[in-house]
Design a protein around this nucleic acid. Structure first.
Lengths: 147, 147
DNA sequence: CGACGAATGAGAACCACTCTCCATCGGTGC
DNA sequence: GCACCGATGGAGAGTGGTTCTCATTCGTCG
């Protein structure tokens, strides 16, 4: 899940499973997401890969999302954020700046994460709910915005 | 935080602090949110209070949000969800059905909640981040949708 | 009652995102 | 090589939830 070549192969496999090719445009998107320090918006993605057309980028992000390569984050801001799927990186959560909208990755202690999972399973079972995954978002103001 | 009259007074105070009146339309919105079993969308709100105009409902929800009376939840679905602010009810989290978009409230164990808070404070401090609040969302499929 | 600002409602406007349409690409069989 | 054909890309139009505009109405205070 770390070596670049292995990651490329994993992505290629998932796309193949969905009858999709790993084309240069899609590769550019994955590269952009990989280079970013955290989840980024579509405008940010286009900024670092100016050759991408907006419509193609949106379409390919959706296709990549469907293939389990990309994850879409929807918060209150004006744009959705995109990142590589957790199964290609690792389980993590997010710090979200309420002022500038920037999103940063954080990782919880493994023990705490296990405790949470158990809690969720229990609560969900009581509600007849079948949980698939969870998100933990910490909202606040980032260092850049507090000045 | 529970007795109706007290809640009404608290809302009235917050609106007054923001130079807003507690009009009948705004009262109808609060009533709708209070009656609902969990966060609801604007169409759902209009359904149970048909006299509300869409534009006024959106405007008042935004104003109520600004006054700290209402909280807006943005997930992937097509509509945002609205609920009474936590300071008027109590801290809780959400189960979100990925199939029908329904949102249900859940409450974590108080000890676990404290542990989480400590964790968040620590992680945020390391990133120069000032946390204000957090959300925990459990995604899955609700009982109605699993059939 | 009169007057002023706040609130309302209907509809237009906005904008992130998706869809449409057609040109082009890339692989496959001949 | 070459023709074929589905997959892909790009440009622009379309979609729909939400917000804005503006004329009208309501509440309140003098």
């Amino acid at each position: 899940m770390v070596a670049t070549s292995e990651l490329e192969r994993a992505i290629n496999d998932r796309l193949a499973d969905h009858d999709l090719r790993y084309t240069s445009g899609r590769r550019a998107i994955v590269e952009g997401l990989k280079r970013a320090e955290g989840p980024i918006t579509l405008p940010e993605l286009l900024e670092c890969s100016p050759d991408l057309a907006q419509s193609s980028a949106y379409r390919n992000l959706s296709l990549l999302e469907g293939a389990g390569v990309v994850r879409r984050l929807v918060h209150g801001g004006e744009h959705a954020h995109f990142e590589l799927a957790e199964s290609l990186t690792e389980h993590h959560h997010h710090l979200i700046c309420e002022s500038c909208g920037q999103v940063r990755d954080i990782t919880l202690d493994a023990g705490l994460e296990r405790t949470l999972d158990r809690s969720f399973d229990e609560l969900a079972a009581n509600e007849g709910f079948t949980p698939t995954h969870h998100t933990v978002d910490v909202y606040g103001v980032c260092g850049d915005c507090t000045g």
